[in-house]
Amino acid sequence: MDFQPHHVLGHFNLLDEEDENFDYQLLHHNGEQWLTFRLGKETYGLEILQVRELISYPESITRVPRLPLFLLGMINLRGMVLPIMDLRKRFEMAEYETGPFTVIIIVQIKSKVIGVVVDSVVDVVNLQQDNLLEAPEESTELDSKFVKGLANLRGEMVILLDLEQLLAPDELEQISMLR
């Protein structure tokens, strides 16, 4: 069992480098890299340094009593017992059936490792300073504390998530109070 942190890019099996749309330029360019994924109609971005790997939706998730609904339960990832968070439920979006594109992004925030369920993964992109947008107030239906910023990527808006907020101490405390 390998408990060592994985080399991040080694696990991007879902990204097909043979794909003609795959942008080497972006991937190997200096600058901040982001993993973009889709949730409902919108595209979100996660800092790639926080992403450990992508896994498909598991056969079973063990429910944990008295937890809020957006925490689906625990899974076994090669011996690690990890919590799974449904981002749609977390962001109070309409529910969605899991399908072949449903992906769990395993993210590491400080010492905690957690899986987040998203509709599908889109790409790995490189964001420059000039991609960033001024974040207008109430730009999305999302609680603004989870939003780090907005970016314009080839005309499409990407909501950059502040993952640490998802697992922030007060957030966790709230979860433990919810029971």
């Binding site: 010492s111 905690k112 979860i175």
Partner: peptide
Amino acid sequence: LEEHFIHIPG
């Protein structure tokens, strides 16, 4: 459970 999550009473 605390290793990657929080302590859950019970």
